[in-house]
């Protein structure tokens, strides 16, 4: 299989980037998309060129580190899939594949396809936890949590923090990410004590980081590998009103 990659190359955060073209053959349909990039990188090394920097770690869809724009879509042509789960069988021999980094003001480019998503960590820092020290926990079954509550919390907690929601949003909004985190904890009895401060502090941080506002285009939920629905954002907004009144 042979494809033409057009890949964004940028040496450092401050340098100017451009799309470069790489004809790549010797690929197979069984290869994952990232393995195709590995393959290209090996060829580049042998041609004495610098490798393309791109992110990955677990390569099984759970760590959230990988993520690029492929032909204009976050994580490639399929819904609800990470870049590492994409395989070359989704492309045809002779295709041209454009690969670009996430584009959002809050995610500055580090190099080539690598961006800095620490803004997400700083949102988490503002309250995506339950303030309780190790060693202070009551017996686990002493607080029953109905299955439907626990399941709904798990739906939200499934977020892998990849940033596809931000990257695909025309406003570069982090509402889906932030709402999932808030809803996960605020649904559980353990998270109730800090529900209002958590919500107000984390949503404030979204703005501080320069993420845009949500205008409910629902683009995010299509790409989300964890299939988190935009109803999560609606739920956060409802909670926001409640927090403003009672918080």
């Amino acid at each position: 299989m042979k494809v033409t990659f057009k890949i964004w190359r940028q040496d450092s955060p401050d340098s100017k980037g451009e799309l470069k073209t790489y004809e790549t053959d010797g690929l197979t349909e069984d290869m994952s998309f990232l393995e195709a990039l590995d393959h290209l990188n090996e060829k580049l090394v042998l041609k004495n060129e610098k490798v393309v920097a791109f992110e990955y770690d677990c390569r099984e869809g759970i760590c959230g580190q990988c993520g690029v724009f492929i032909n204009g879509r976050a994580h490639g042509p399929h819904d609800h899939m990470t870049t590492c789960q994409l395989h070359m069988r989704s492309f045809k021999d002779g295709d041209t594949i454009t690969v670009e980094p996430w584009q959002a003001g809050a995610f500055p480019i580090v190099k080539d396809l690598v961006v800095d998503r620490t803004a997400f960590d700083r949102i988490v820092e503002q309250g995506a936890y339950i303030t309780a020290k190790t060693g202070t926990a009551p017996e686990a079954n002493s607080i029953p949590v109905p299955k439907e509550v626990s399941d709904a919390a798990m739906d939200m907690a499934a977020c892998i923090g990849c940033g596809a929601c931000v990257a695909t949003c025309k406003n570069a909004s982090a509402a889906l990410f932030t709402s999932a985190k808030i809803n996960h904890l605020n649904k559980l009895p353990q998270g109730k004590a800090e529900q209002h401060t958590r919500l107000l502090d984390m949503t404030k941080q979204m703005e501080v980081e320069g993420f845009g506002s949500c205008t409910f285009t629902a683009a995010c939920e299509v790409e989300c590998p964890a299939e988190i629905s935009i109803s999560s954002i609606a739920e956060m907004n409802a909670r926001y009103v409640k927090a403003k009144i009672f918080g």
Partner: peptide, 15 residues
């Protein structure tokens, strides 16, 4: 559980 891990539960709410 205290830290908010949504472990699987029975309908009655126990783990």
């Amino acid at each position: 559980t205290q830290q908010g891990v949504p472990f699987a539960r029975e309908y009655g709410g126990v783990l």
